[in-house]
């Protein structure tokens, strides 16, 4: 009996290696921070141990996307107005009890608590994990998530008028959405989702794999794009659906993208090459490839089993394949291949 299906005996030759995507594709790659929060906080050891503090105000804004409500409380009038302007039609007046929701409370923090430097804003921050707790710290904010199935989030910031313009609120919302989706058996995936009729193709891969290129080709071919950066994948009674999240990539910042919920026809790990081709992925390789594109949750050791189970469930419902593509007019052919094979 050979040790390997093709008769090879060396085990190391069959090993593949991937690198987990940095938490934010537009942030600086940073794989091993020296200590949690020290780049952003003057006293990381004084990080809030529980969700309490002085509210900025009494305003509430509910942001609805991917089947859930994100209920933001304790906002000042200025902060609430900025969130409503940024998230537009996604903002609703109330959160129906029947819909899943997460509460995010916003508290004041002293500017002196944060490292003062020349940075303006960036999609880069530190994450730290404990059982049932995720802490995060970035430019002029601290945040924590408590719970697993039912989440509660808190944000501390000294920023009033710059809460939205400096991406503080969006940074927090990304983390909260990633964990909320995971709690529902879904995943926030670094991906480009392209609508094709009533369904969608989801193209994923690390930065540079071609998500934005595929999205531009899709738009040129008159296909709608949900997002070229991040999409929510959720398991529903009807299968896996892709839904737009309000975290725009390069394309979403400049033009209108599609809304709604689309049944996913296939998941494609992008790979650049001269000749368009599709090849199947084994179950383990599929999970590994998806795992590297599940930001914020894929480094949390306390949620690893849950994440792998969610990705296995996706892979069991959908074909996961490697798509080799060239940035040319053959894009429609790729979509057809993805549909019929």
């Amino acid at each position: 009996m050979p040790m390997h299906s093709d008769g090879q005996t060396a085990m190391t030759g069959a090993r593949t290696e991937e690198r987990i995507e940095p938490a934010n594709s537009r942030g600086s790659p940073r794989l091993a921070p020296a200590a949690f929060g020290e780049r952003f906080l003057r006293h990381p050891d004084l990080f809030p141990a529980r969700q309490s503090g002085e509210r900025w105000g009494e305003e509430r804004v509910v942001v609805h996307f991917a089947g859930s409500d994100y209920v933001c409380d304790g906002l000042s009038t200025t902060q609430a107005a900025a969130i409503r302007e940024r998230f537009g039609a996604l903002c609703t007046a109330s959160a129906p009890a029947a819909r899943p929701s997460v509460n995010i409370r916003v508290f004041r923090a002293a500017a002196a608590d944060f490292v003062d430097d020349d940075r303006e804003w960036e999609f880069d921050f530190d994450l730290d994990y404990a059982p049932g707790v995720v802490r995060f710290a970035g430019f002029h904010f601290m945040g924590r998530l408590d719970g697993t199935a039912t989440l509660r989030a808190a944000l501390w910031t000294p920023e009033d008028s710059r809460l939205v313009s400096h991406a503080i609120f969006e940074n927090v919302l990304r983390v909260v959405a990633a964990y909320h989706l995971l709690g529902q058996g879904g995943v926030l995936l670094h991906s480009a989702a392209v609508a094709d009729g009533p369904g969608a193709h989801v193209f994923f891969g690390p930065s540079g794999a071609g998500k934005s290129t595929v999205s531009r080709l899709a738009l040129a071919a008159h296909c709608a794009v949900l997002s070229d950066d991040m999409n929510a994948l959720r398991l529903t009674a009807d299968g896996v659906v892709a839904e737009k999240v309000p975290f725009a990539g390069d394309i979403g910042q400049t033009q209108e993208t599609a809304d709604g919920s689309y049944p996913v026809r296939g998941l494609f790990r992008l790979e650049k090459g001269e000749i368009p081709a599709l090849r199947a992925m084994g179950a383990a390789s599929a999970v590994a490839a998806l795992l590297e594109c599940a930001p914020f949750v894929n480094r949390n050791p306390y949620r690893y089993d849950e994440l792998v189970a969610a990705l296995q469930a996706l892979g069991a419902r959908l074909p996961v394949r490697v798509l080799t593509f060239a940035p040319d007019h053959r894009f429609r052919e790729l979509l057809r291949m993805g549909t019929v094979q």
Partner: peptide, 30 residues
């Protein structure tokens, strides 16, 4: 303690979370 491992369909997925590395090992490796 830093490594997480799952046998999936006879192959193995190994994650070293602090280093951000994901490995896939074949059936024998798993």
């Amino acid at each position: 303690s830093d490594a997480r491992y799952r046998n999936i369909g006879g192959e193995g997925v190994v994650v070293r979370q602090s280093a951000g590395e994901v490995l896939v090992v074949n059936g024998v490796g798993a």
